[in-house]
Amino acid sequence: MTHAAQIQPTFEAWRAKARELLRHGVSPENVDWVDASQTASLLTEEPTEYQIAPNASVKVPAEFLRLAANVCAHTDERRFAILYRLLHRLTLGGEKHLLGMPSDRDVHQCNMWAKAVSRDIHKMHAFVRFRLVGVNEQNGREQFVAWFEPEYRITRLAAPFFEKRFAGMEWSILTPDECASWDGEKLSFMPGMSRHDAPAADAHDDLWRTYYRSIFNPARLKVQAMQSEMPMKYWKNLPEAEIIHDLIASSEKRVRTMIATPERPVKPALDNAYLKSLRQKPQKS
């Protein structure tokens, strides 16, 4: 018989359901995984009748749990089913070494999903931009808010990094799916918000753009290399991205000017005690 597994699209929900199904020995081809956030609430799940009595709990390698946490954050609708099949093969199926076989189709697919999610987490760590909104009058801590649009549902996975790094500030990161907030003591999560709930700019953005403009070397233009690491989908929330086009457009002229500049003659050494000492004893004693 087919079991309808209707869950919220989170790792915790999948894990709870998967444990239950596995305890009753349900095979993967008999489970129909449904994302409850995507379906009408009329479709309430009926309590399942299992044909097999519950087993003792099964153990999986920690590596699998890490993989599963990332896979669940992906948006592909096949992820819960394939992940359960992997779990089933790994445990009841007796394929203990499965995770060591990157060439296996299920392992490969889950690795690809996990990799995409982990890249998205990494990019969130990189591209979140905090904006100063005020100072907490009681303790003097500065308060910051950021708006970010990750590709997958990664707010919970990405938040601990910000906690460690910015523990001395108060901050919130708003995203369309879920928001994270740190009050100096505790990390908490709230439902998603809209871009308009976050400030659009920070007084330091101009200084940051000045830095970005000045550290760029027009003589080594490699636009594709930039875009492969900083895809355009992230640009709309990066203050520095608005000057990229101008930098690219003006670089050829800047390089031509450099090449056309007449060479400078060598200036003689100054009368400086330190420079003299360098010439007198060319080696450190």
Partner: peptide, 24 residues
Amino acid sequence: DSRDGKGIGSTGGMGICHSYTPDG
């Protein structure tokens, strides 16, 4: 890291590239 509540910052593990300029 800064979880002792003093100051800010953390290091360890992979470094992060926070932006890329058009020179790649």
